[in-house]
Amino acid sequence: MSEKQRGLGRGLSALLSDNQGNVPVVPVAADGAPVQTLEKPIELLIRNPDQPRRFFSEAEIDDLAASVKEKGVLSPILVRPAPNAAGQFQIIAGERRWRAAQKAGLKTVPVLVRELDDLEVLEIGIIENVQREDLNPIEEARAYKTLMERFGRTQDAVAQVVSKSRSHIANMMRLLALPEAIQDHVIHGRLSAGHARAIATCDNAAELAEKIIAQGLSVRQAEALARQSSAGLETKSARPKAQPDADVLSLAQDLEEILGLTVKLDDKGGKGEMKIAYANLEQLDALCRRLMAS
């Protein structure tokens, strides 16, 4: 990965000073010189359709709008000239402030204009939100999936961009295999990512999710509930479904760490199949080169 890609996180922090609310910020360039902000009519700003964050709390926007109404937008919004929309600007970072400014009735907002390509915009959007913990787990997983499928990133490359471990990326991606109902619970904070992973392999996951929410169970209690449910279903079944061997699961995770791809091992008494999923031909080429070099 290039220095430019690895440095995005540090550059964003320098530009926005990790500003989490309506706090005054003096933006600086990479060489430490002040960066000029511009005032633009608020109607010229448009949201980025690839913005990783989709869910905004109304209470949160209301609180920020009250601050904006009193003090204005103190931290500039990062934008770029909008593709295919002459005279408009696409928001790269700061959509929450933009929404609050609209609610507060502002006519103009301060902006920093940058020339950035689609990949840089997506990576900055992910970094900004991950650093500030603004994304819910499903939004975070979807953002990683977009980086991998649209731009050919491996799990290892994504991990470097957002300064996370490869296992973290893999664990987040697994959430996207959950039923839509459970994903919705995670999006709205009714279930944590830990709760969702605890019941992910259960045949009655949706039923267990409702029980966890109703009873306010912890992640550990959810894991115990999942084990009890699986054991009960196996007892009732004439042909119980065999549980994956712990060593085999561990080996699959190790392979995922090494390859940066999803790996499934189907072991049956020492014989079986290994399946490796790739998102595009670039990932397949990289895998083939690694195997042929062994």
Rank of each mutant, 00 (worst) to 15 (best):
A222H: 08
N48D: 15
A214H: 09
C202W: 02
E120M: 03
V23F: 06
A82H: 08
E123Y: 02
L78R: 00
T108Y: 06
T146Q: 15
E39P: 00
I126E: 13
A279M: 13
A33R: 12
E257Q: 12
E282G: 08
P244I: 07
A286Y: 03
R142D: 10
L251D: 13
Y144P: 03
D285N: 11
K241E: 15
L284D: 03
F56G: 01
P24M: 12
P240Y: 01
A100I: 03
A143Q: 14
A104Q: 07
V219K: 08
A33C: 04
I187E: 10
E70R: 15
I91W: 08
E128A: 15
A14W: 10
A59F: 13
L265R: 11
Q243Y: 08
G7S: 12
S67A: 07
R142V: 08
N19Y: 12
S218C: 10
A246V: 12
L12Y: 14
G72W: 15
L281N: 07
V130E: 14
I212N: 01
L74N: 07
L178A: 14
V121K: 07
D184E: 09
R239I: 11
D117H: 11
K271T: 12
V73P: 02
S17L: 10
K40Y: 06
G269R: 09
V111H: 06
S163N: 14
W98D: 01
S250L: 13
R54Q: 15
L16D: 05
E210T: 04
T146S: 13
P83G: 04
G7V: 04
Q221Y: 04
P34Q: 03
R96V: 01
R132K: 15
A30T: 03
Q88L: 14
F89Y: 14
A85Q: 06
G9K: 12
D50G: 02
K241N: 13
Q88V: 07
S167K: 01
L225K: 07
N22H: 08
E207W: 08
S250D: 07
A286I: 02
S192R: 03
D203G: 05
G216T: 02
V162C: 02
A177D: 10
L44H: 08
D62F: 02
R114S: 00
L233D: 10
H168E: 12
V79R: 04
S57F: 06
R97G: 06
R227Y: 08
D156A: 10
H188M: 02
P27A: 04
L119N: 06
G232F: 11
Q102W: 10
T201D: 14
A193T: 00
G189V: 04
Q20P: 01
L44N: 05
L135K: 13
P52H: 07
E207R: 12
G9W: 07
R166E: 05
R289G: 04
H185N: 02
E234Q: 08
A206K: 04
K275H: 11
Q183Y: 00
A59V: 05
P49E: 10
K236A: 14
K145N: 15
Q221W: 06
Q36M: 06
E180S: 09
L233E: 14
Q283W: 05
A231V: 12
R10H: 09
R47S: 09
M1A: 08
L38F: 07
A286K: 04
A246R: 09
S250Q: 08
T146K: 15
A277D: 07
A86K: 15
S165Q: 03
E95G: 02
H168F: 11
L191W: 06
L135C: 13
I42L: 15
L175Y: 01
P24V: 07
G72A: 14
R220W: 12
A86H: 08
